[in-house]
Nucleic acid binder design. Structure first.
Lengths: 144, 144
DNA sequence: CTAACTTATATAGTTTGGTTATATAGTTAA
DNA sequence: TTAACTATATAACCAAACTATATAAGTTAG
């Protein structure tokens, strides 16, 4: 395989910038972790807090705190885990799905101009890159 | 062009996760903004603080603060701007270049396992995606 | 069956990177 | 040479992240 150094470096620097641009979007005061979390719940279904923390790559206390807010806003629900009453299953709710959708639209309106002249080919590459990265950064295989 | 919504969403969520993994790497206490900044200086040469802030997508005071630290650690140098004595040109120093290089190696050792079975084809896609994103998120055209 | 251990989440306290608002000093133009 | 503007620095603050620890439920050894 080719040298990984510059590749990962470039990807991560680009990722960092993108993250910051996204954070700025629409003066969004919502932390990126919220979207990451909702997104995981949306694609993977209900999860325990600990697993969610691992998958979002934040500590468990951070996730607990974040969820308190999300529950408060009714973006997600707590479901008692019948098999283990210490644990909760966290599920995305209709409001959460809606918020996620709204954010996507917001993103593309905000970032649209930057990517306006994207060729179909380039879009394809980004899509595939996103898929590759998502697969590699997914902790499900280890967590499950 | 195809719908931008899901594409940007996927890319940004993936970017966020990558950023967090990178941040964790090697218990690195160094904020991502440092690498972003050094990286910009490394590829674009000496820049003013304000321009650097725009390119790193942080506020000017944030960049000023960050640079105080980097100067202290001798990763970068301040060069008086002969044309405008209010301004400084910030240049990456040998230590900065070395640190950046070390970080790259660190990254690939840490993240290597995740990307171990990357095919040449996939590596190619990531490389191209990084290039596309870098170009789009670059503010140079506007700043210059 | 209960005591010891482990595991899942919650809480407390702290650190720090980021922000906005403003001050200071230098530049430019009338 | 004064007014308006610009480049950086400082101040005060916020919030998201962490570590360490508490609580409570499950598990297991004796």
């Amino acid at each position: 395989m080719a040298a990984l150094d510059p590749l990962l470096h470039d990807v991560i620097v680009a990722a960092h910038r993108l993250t910051r641009i996204a954070a700025h979007s629409a003066g969004s005061t919502t932390p990126a972790a919220v979207w990451s979390t909702l997104s995981i719940l949306s694609t993977d279904g209900p999860l325990r807090i600990g697993d969610l923390a691992k998958m979002s790559r934040v500590s468990q206390p951070s996730m607990t705190k974040l969820l308190q807010r999300l529950v408060e806003e009714e973006l997600v629900y707590r479901i008692a885990d019948v098999e283990d009453s210490r644990a909760w299953l966290i599920a995305i709710g209709p409001k959460g799905t809606a918020a996620l959708g709204a954010w996507r639209v917001e993103l593309s309106t905000q970032l649209g101009p930057l990517f306006a002249d994207l060729t179909t080919d380039e879009a394809e590459i980004l899509q595939r890159a996103a898929r590759i990265l998502t697969a590699r950064t997914d902790t499900k295989r280890k967590v499950a």
